[in-house]
Every structure is written in structure tokens, then in C-alpha cells.
Design a protein around this nucleic acid. Structure first.
Lengths: 202, 202
DNA sequence: ACTCGACTTGATCGATTAGTCAAATTGTGA
DNA sequence: TCACAATTTGACTAATCGATCAAGTCGAGT
């Protein structure tokens, strides 16, 4: 029953608290208390609160594939279905939190209005890593989506829709705006595939 | 050269600062200083900082049509073009702020993780007021969009895309993600209209 | 046994925070 | 002219913030 090393424990706690309350509403003392860690010990590992944020964002980035993508895609092969399975993970997060917890990266991205370049870059890296995964799906489904199809642009659009949908679900405290956005996105893919099928015939 | 009443001046200043720095990063002292207003005077009008936020959100709500919609739609009659003219306003806000200022309501909606019910309701009201305007456009264009077209759902989708696009533009400090999202939305409307035109023929 | 660096303890710091208050001033109607 | 309420002034408070620091503990290597 050995516990996680202090530095990792601090990151784990901060990751949770930043997601639940946001960066600014989480005090360093909060993180210390919930990590059973004293002030000097905290500052031994993280010179400033922002350094903790950087570590959290790095962990998020490295967790995208093993903690988010792989669980979402287990048992699902169709590339388009994988995209909607990923969106379903966010729906689940919203559901179990009663529409208070959505995408922590998106929340941080809008909460921090003038982030240091390092922070902003890591936020962007998280988005890019997410988009990369969706792009791979779309490349896998390219044949069904038509010739002029832009996989990268569409992958970015999927992130756009997810983030906007999470925002509305949280603001309305209601899953329906999220479901409506996903349904519209589904419809968009359907029309693309129908158009591609017609194109194939001609 | 009489100046704005103190209460209005405080709201005007707070509206700007909340948009530039966010709610939590704006101190009551900041608002007081930039409004030439002393502490006691501030608390005469607003018992708490949150009451100031409520007043700001009410002003935003009442400003949607006269300050945002009407300028965006001046000289534009086509309902679909009005939607993209509205999105172009947000693009302009991003551009002149070098991708730091997008939609203040969206920022507040994600910054405030557990807002008081009054605050959350006003954020939702702002979204609803925005969606109402887009819905009117879509109802005006219903004939070109097909029979089963859901104007309300699609209006919400436009907000979803706008908010997600603003988030990415701010995070990447680059207008291209915004433009890409708007282009994809445009493409979506195009496919809807083409499908409706085919439906018309049949 | 000794050393050294990594880590922990916990008191403490100055700055900033939202908010209070009593006294002074101002504008308005009788 | 008086009265009275609305507003303004600015000092003040208690709490919290991120961060500092010196002293102490611990374990691994020699």
C-alpha cells in the first residue's frame, strides 16, 4: 500500500481540482491539503502555481490516447463510429457530473485570458493531439466521404462542435443541447457520405 | 459633457474588464479605479461582486439586438448571409484583439464552474437570445433548406460552432481555425440547400 | 559511522482580496 | 430655509492569496 510519490500526487489532485473548480478558484492551499502535502514540500517540486498548471497540462496531453481515446474506441472499428464514441465519452462525463464537468482543456483555454506562452502552447498541444486522433479516423473513412474531403479541417470541426456543445450543456445544465449538436454533426457526415456515394455512381 | 451615472459607469467598466481578463481576474478594486469610484460608492450600488456580474449579464442580454445583431445585419437581407455576417462580427473581434477577445458570454460560461442559479440563468438567457435571432434567419430560409429542417436545432448548432471556433482561435492565437470552422458550416448549409433543391425537383 | 542531497515540516511573509462603516457631501422637494 | 434621502469619501477589516524560509528528517552511497 505504498502511495503515489508526492509530485505525482500533487499533479493528480490539481488535475481534479482544476477540472472541478477551474485554475483560479483552486488555491495552492487546496491542492496541498487534498494531497496531504505541506507548503514547503509543494514549492520544492513546483516553484510557482503556474508550474503546477504546466505539469497538469502535460499529464493531460500524455493521457489523451491511453485514458480517453483507447477506452472510447475499445471494440469499435468503424472510423466514423469511433468519432461518435469519443463524443459519447464527453456525454458520459457531462451526465455523471449533472452537466458541470465537460472538457477541462476547453475550460482552461477560456478561463486563462492571457496565459503565458508555455501554458497557451500546451493548451494548443492538447487540442492538436485530440484533433490528430479524429483526423486518423477521417482518413480511414476518406473513401466514403468524397474526393475533395479535407480530413484535417473536418477533424478540427469535430473538436469545435464538441467544445461548443459542452459549453451549452454546462450553461443550460441540460444534455439536450449537447445531443442536438452531435445529432447535427451526424447528419452532416451522413450528407457527406450520401454525396460521396452519388459521386461514386456518376 | 456630463458623464454616465456611477452605476452605469461601473457596469460599463466591468463589462469591458470581465471580457478582457475574466470575472475572477478582475478585482472589485480594478473596476472601482477604472470607474473613478470609491469603495463605499461601489457597494452602495452593488452589495456584492456577483451583483455587478448580474448587472453586466443583463446589459449583455439587452445589448444583443441593438449592439450586435443590428450592426451585423445592416444592408444584408438574405437570411443565410445574415448568419455568416454575424459570425464575421466575431471574426472581427478576434482580429482586432489578435485572437484574445472572442465571446465574453462563452468565456464566463466556462470560467464559472458552479455559478449561482441567477448567474447561470442569465448566461443561458444570453445564449437563448442569440439562438433566437439565428433561428429567425433559418425560419426565413426554411424553403431553401428542405422539409424536415429543424430551425431551432440548427440555430443552436450555429452557436455551438461559433463558440467552439472562438475557443480554438484564442487557444491557437490564429484566425485559421475559426475560418475553417465557418467554412465547414457554410459547406453544411450548401449541402442542405442542394439536397432541398433536389427534393424540390422530385 | 558518516555524508550529502532529496525531501518534509510548519511558521511566516507581504500583497491582495471582497466587503464594511461612519462621516461628509450633494441634490431635491416642501 | 430646512429636511431628508441619495450618494460619495476613504480609512479600515478579516480572510485568503501565492510564496519564502530555516530547521529538521530521511535514505542511499561510501
Amino acid at each position: 500500500m505504498q502511495q503515489e510519490p508526492t509530485r505525482d500526487r500533487l499533479i493528480t489532485t490539481a488535475l481534479r481540482l482544476f477540472g472541478e473548480k477551474g485554475y483560479q478558484s483552486t488555491s495552492v492551499a487546496d491542492v496541498q491539503r487534498e494531497s496531504d502535502c505541506h507548503s514547503g514540500s509543494f514549492y520544492h517540486f513546483f516553484p510557482t502555481k503556474q508550474d503546477l498548471l504546466l505539469a497538469v497540462l502535460e499529464r493531460y496531453r500524455s493521457a489523451i490516447v491511453p485514458m480517453l481515446i483507447e477506452p472510447a474506441w475499445a471494440g469499435i472499428d468503424d472510423p466514423i463510429e469511433r468519432i461518435f464514441a469519443l463524443l459519447a465519452r464527453y456525454r458520459m462525463l457531462l451526465e455523471i457530473s449533472h452537466c458541470t464537468y465537460g472538457c477541462p482543456i476547453g475550460s482552461l483555454a477560456l478561463e486563462l485570458h492571457e496565459p503565458d506562452p508555455e501554458v497557451r502552447q500546451l493548451l494548443a498541444d492538447n487540442f492538436t493531439g485530440w484533433i490528430d486522433q479524429v483526423e486518423n479516423c477521417l482518413i480511414g473513412a476518406r473513401k466514403t466521404l468524397g474526393r475533395g474531403f479535407d480530413a484535417r479541417r473536418t477533424a478540427g470541426f469535430v473538436l469545435t462542435v464538441m467544445e461548443g456543445a459542452v459549453m451549452q450543456a454546462r450553461t443550460y445544465r441540460d444534455l439536450r443541447p449537447f445531443d442536438a449538436a452531435v445529432a447535427t454533426l451526424r447528419e452532416y457526415f451522413n450528407t457527406l457520405q450520401r454525396a460521396a456515394a452519388r459521386e461514386e455512381l456518376a
